[in-house]
Simulated assay, not measured.
Amino acid sequence: MRTDNEEAPIRFDTKIAVLLRDDLEPWQRLNVTAFLVSGLGTAVPEVVGEPYRDVDGAEYLPMFRQPVLVFQGSKETMAAAHGRARARALASAVFTSDLFRTGNDRDNRAAVRAVGTDSLDLVGLAVHGPRNVVDKVLKGAQMHP
């Protein structure tokens, strides 16, 4: 039997959002999203829920405890969002166009390290923070279709 608390809608004070540049190929959008959200779970462990278990007792890895909203925007929207996220010190992950030419974490980190903050050719950004702050960071972006 469920109690009233178990039936009440769950509301989150925070938001997880991914912003993708609108000129990416479909495979790139999926790849970038997967890479970006992997960073949030390690840096912000409270966004990860409990492990899953089916009726037979098989266990599955835990996932985020809240939805991940995916947005898209132009190169300019991406740069503005990145600047706003940095100014507000939001937990964030970046994916640059250079990372499509690398094949491992070491080379990915080197590619980002080789470019100044304002010169990063961002194709993806993931952020986590208070709902209203994330909304301000993503100003001008549209929900991904």
Rank of each mutant, 00 (worst) to 15 (best):
R131C: 02
Y52W: 12
I16R: 13
R21W: 07
V112N: 11
T33M: 11
F35Y: 15
M143L: 15
L99I: 09
S74L: 08
R11N: 09
G129Q: 01
G129P: 02
D107I: 09
S119I: 03
V44Q: 11
H82T: 04
G83A: 12
L20D: 05
V18M: 03
S97N: 09
L122G: 08
L36C: 01
H128R: 02
P62F: 07
R53E: 15
T102Y: 01
L99E: 10
N31W: 04
G83K: 11
F100T: 08
L20I: 07
N108M: 07
D105L: 14
T33D: 08
F95K: 12
R29D: 06
L61W: 06
V134I: 02
L20R: 14
L120N: 09
V32M: 05
A126I: 08
K15T: 15
E76G: 09
R131A: 06
F64L: 14
A43S: 13
P67Q: 13
D56L: 14
A8C: 06
P9G: 07
N132G: 09
G41V: 05
R86W: 00
V133D: 05
D54E: 14
V70K: 08
H82Y: 15
G39K: 12
P9H: 08
A89W: 03
G140Y: 05
G49Q: 04
V68Q: 12
R11P: 00
E50C: 04
H128E: 01
L138Y: 00
D54A: 04
G39L: 07
A79D: 15
L99W: 02
G49P: 07
P62T: 12
Q72A: 12
L122C: 06
L120F: 07
A89D: 15
S74C: 05
P67D: 13
L125N: 09
M63G: 15
R29K: 15
G49F: 01
T77N: 11
P51M: 13
M1I: 10
G49R: 05
G140E: 05
M78F: 03
T3F: 07
G129R: 02
L125E: 10
A80H: 10
V70E: 14
V134Q: 09
E59Y: 06
A80K: 04
F64V: 14
L19V: 08
L20F: 04
I10E: 12
V70Q: 00
H128M: 09
I16N: 12
